[in-house]
Structure formats: structure tokens, C-alpha cells
């Protein structure tokens, strides 16, 4: 909301110079603004609009226009029907496509797995904060995967999880039969999500450690003096104090999961086996690049955009409410 922020700081000055009665910013907000503005000289009246124009233009030209264009394309046809309006035809086709439904249900799966993705860095950060032996070493090691590209991570885990790879060799040596980690549709998605969490939890860990830095050590000491166990310290002292950090990590992890799994999927499973690891992004890429269906891909993009919008708005609401409680 750049408009809302700029106006109060510009208006009072212009109103003052125009010699009118003193108008407080509060009065502007309550609706006195249009009447006052009409009185000022032209240049000053338009100044705020001119000042915000570059930002608005950039947003409109580079963000909103392409977005609307994309939504518009989603109502046109492909191939022979190129350019003709087909109404909701593309959307009907999408929801009739079992592959797209799988992609959507995988988004649901990601949301369900979110607590796990947040709990892992949270727990590990707690251990580091409580100075378990070797905590300095772990602090750097945990962050290390976060600097690797998803393609490299995917390639490494492709080797590790191959049917004749080292993980199955280890399992074999303890008498457990080999598992086709990336070839079994019931397992593959969990493996990809697991690798994604492994590759990205370092960033969340750093956020948690920053949160811990603001934690009041006196509270922990008091809890210890009162004889609280480690579990009780974590549950009754650490978690409530870090509520806002945890919420922030929830939001960023969710966004990361929904928008940056493409590289891993591309390298590790190519959407397979049996289409079980499709996500909307991958579906869009396949339809546009491989199937030559740009309009259908636009429709899928629009749906993904709506999903992200809903998730994002919900998270903003959540953060706002948490802010009020403070």
C-alpha cells in the first residue's frame, strides 16, 4: 500500500502552505482530504501523484498488465482455436485432468507436511541454543545445504537414492530389502519433500537462532531453578517466547515449498513415477513447453496464482492477529 503511506506525510505540508486551517493527519484519514485538496494550486495538488507515478507505472506495466494478460489468455484456446474465446473451457479441461488434480492434491500434502518442515529447524535451533556438545560445528553444518542449488542437491540425492545406490546397500547389509525410493509412487513425493526440507531448513534455522538471541535468558534460568525438565523448558518457556518467529518461519517455509520445488522435481523425478510428484508449477511447464498448450498453461497459472493469493492473505491475517496480541 504505497499510496496510504505517502499521503499523510505529503498532505499536511501542502495544506499548511496553502494557508488553510490547520488540518491534522487524523482529519485527512477521516475523509476531509478531497475538500482540502481542491483548494491547493495545481502543481501541488498533483505532486503526490507524480511522485508515486513511477512506482505505480512499474507495478502496472510489469506486474498487473502481464497478470491480466495471462488471465485473459486462459480464456482463449490453443492450436487451431488460437485467439478465439473459449470461456471456461480450459478450466473445465484442467479439472477433468487427473494429472492436474494430482498436482493440486500434492499442494495439499505440502501444507500438511508444513509443521514437520518448521519443527525440524526449530528443534535443532533449540539444541544449538542450549549448547549441546559441538553446537558451533552443527551451526555451520546445518546451514551448508542452503547454499547449494536445488539441481545439485537433486543430483546428489538421485545417486544416494538410486535403486542400486548406497542407501539401499546400507539397508541390504542389515537385511532389509531394497526400496525404490524414487520409483514408488507412494514414496517418491515424500522423498522429494524430505530432500527439499533437508536442503532449505538451514535458512529457517538461522531465523530461529536470531529469535533465540532475543530470548530472555533469565526466564530459562528461573525455569531451571524451579526444576523444569528440558521438555518442560522447551514447551513452556521457549515456544511461547518465540511465537512470532515461529509464525514467520511458517510463512516463509510455505512460500518456499509452493514456489521453489521445481528444480528438485525436474532433476529427481520428472513428475513421475506415474505422475505422482506433479506440482502445479511443473504441470504449467510441461503444458507450455512440451505440449505446446500456452492457453491451458495460463489457466493453470491463474489457478496457482489464486491458491497463492488465498494462502498469502490467510498468512497476513494470521500475522496481523499475532501482532495485535503483542
Amino acid at each position: 500500500m504505497p499510496m496510504g503511506n505517502t499521503q499523510p506525510s505529503v498532505r499536511p505540508a501542502s495544506a499548511g502552505r496553502a494557508g488553510g486551517a490547520a488540518v491534522t493527519p487524523v482529519a485527512h484519514r477521516s475523509g476531509a482530504r478531497p475538500r482540502r485538496a481542491r483548494g491547493g494550486p495545481g502543481a501541488e495538488r498533483y505532486a503526490p501523484y507524480i511522485l508515486v507515478a513511477p512506482a505505480v507505472l512499474i507495478i502496472v506495466l510489469l506486474r498487473l498488465y502481464p497478470l491480466i494478460l495471462g488471465v485473459n489468455f486462459s480464456f482463449t484456446g490453443d492450436g487451431a482455436q488460437n485467439g478465439t474465446a473459449v470461456g471456461f473451457g480450459n478450466y473445465r479441461e484442467l479439472f477433468a485432468d487427473p494429472l492436474f488434480r494430482t498436482a493440486l492434491s500434492n499442494v495439499g500434502l505440502l501444507v500438511l507436511l508444513l509443521p514437520v518442515a518448521v519443527a525440524i529447524p526449530g528443534l535443532l535451533a533449540t539444541f544449538i541454543y542450549l549448547r549441546v556438545p559441538g553446537h558451533r560445528f552443527y551451526r555451520s553444518v546445518y546451514f551448508f545445504p542452503a547454499v547449494l542449488s536445488p539441481v545439485i542437491v537433486g543430483a546428489i540425492f538421485n545417486l544416494l537414492l538410486a535403486f542400486d545406490g548406497p542407501l539401499n546397500a546400507v539397508l541390504g547389509s542389515v537385511g532389509v530389502g531394497p526400496v525404490d525410493w524414487l520409483g514408488d509412487p507412494d514414496i517418491a513425493m515424500f522423498m522429494v519433500v524430505g530432500v527439499h526440507i533437508w536442503a532449505t531448513f538451514g535458512m529457517a534455522l538461522v531465523v530461529f537462532l536470531a529469535g533465540f538471541a532475543t530470548l530472555d535468558a533469565a526466564l530459562l534460568d528461573a525455569a531451571r531453578v524451579d526444576g523444569a525438565s528440558l521438555r518442560q523448558v522447551v514447551w513452556h518457556v521457549v515456544v511461547p517466547s518465540l511465537a512470532r518467529t515461529i509464525q514467520f518461519v511458517f510463512v516463509t517455509t510455505m512460500i518456499g515449498m509452493l514456489t521453489s520445488m521445481f528444480g528438485l522435481l525436474f532433476v529427481m523425478t520428472s513428475g513421475g513415477p506415474e505422475g505422482s510428484t506433479y506440482l502445479p508449477e511443473y504441470y504449467i511447464w510441461i503444458q507450455q513447453g512440451q505440449m505446446n498448450r500456452p492457453a491451458l498453461a495460463s489457466a493453470a497459472s491463474t489457478i496457482l496464482f489464486v491458491i497463492m493469493l488465498v494462502v498469502g492473505l490467510m498468512q497476513i491475517k494470521l500475522l496481523e492477529r499475532a501482532g495485535k496480541e503483542d
Binding site: I68, L69, V71, N72, F73, F75, T76, D78, N82, G83, T84, A85, V86, G87, F88, P294, A295, A297, S298
Partner: peptide, 15 residues
């Protein structure tokens, strides 16, 4: 209004 408008119009083309 925007969605309905676009759906009815569906002008331009994806390619």
C-alpha cells in the same frame, strides 16, 4: 466483474 469480463471477452491469443 474482471473475471467475468475476461471470460466473456477472451480476446487476444496465447500464441
Amino acid at each position: 466483474v474482471l473475471v467475468v469480463g475476461l471470460a466473456l471477452a477472451g480476446c487476444g491469443s496465447a500464441s
